[in-house]
Computed example of a mutant assay.
Amino acid sequence: MRTDGRLARMLHVLVHMGLLGGRETSERIGQMLNTNPVVVRRTLGSLREHGIVESEGGRGGGWKLTRPLDEITVLDVQRALTAGSILTAPTSEDHPSCPVERASNRVIEAAHAAAEAQLVEAYAATTLAQIGSAALDVT
């Protein structure tokens, strides 16, 4: 199963943008992430819709943060990238009338809901400034 690495990749880019304090083009970000600038524009477009970044076209244009790193949480970025649950409960719908399948699904869903609540809490409590500080403390 392929994992979605957009959150980690966007946190990486956004923290760099905040630490460098300027604008970055889709082409430059694409080079940083080893991906196509079109993918960068699509992903950053979601962040723009959620008020995390803004863009300016033309010469000298590019992407920049709309607010300081200490005002953006990991949860803000996550919500901009993915609507709904962060964790998907791997339930079965093969035999919906089976009481064993329904009971198994309830256990899995409850465990995932509890894990989701803890994850949301941790993401909401972590700012991009904290990530930047942790990166600068590494020697």
Score class of each variant (00 low, 15 high):
M1P: 08
R6Y: 10
L7S: 15
V13L: 02
V15A: 14
G21Q: 14
G21P: 03
G22D: 15
T25F: 03
T25N: 05
S26M: 01
R28C: 05
I29V: 01
Q31E: 02
M32G: 09
L33V: 01
L33A: 07
N34L: 15
N36A: 04
V38R: 15
V38I: 06
T43D: 04
T43K: 15
T43W: 12
L44N: 13
R48E: 03
R48H: 09
G51L: 02
V53P: 01
V53W: 02
E56H: 05
G57K: 15
G58C: 14
R59P: 06
T66L: 06
R67C: 01
E71Y: 15
E71C: 01
T73M: 00
V74K: 01
Q78W: 07
A80M: 04
T82G: 01
T82C: 10
T88A: 14
T91F: 12
C98Y: 14
P99V: 13
R102W: 07
V107H: 13
E109T: 02
A110K: 09
A111K: 11
H112F: 11
A113Y: 04
A115G: 07
A115I: 07
E116H: 14
E116F: 14
Q118W: 06
L119C: 10
A125I: 12
A125H: 07
L128W: 09
A129N: 10
I131F: 08
I131Y: 09
G132A: 10
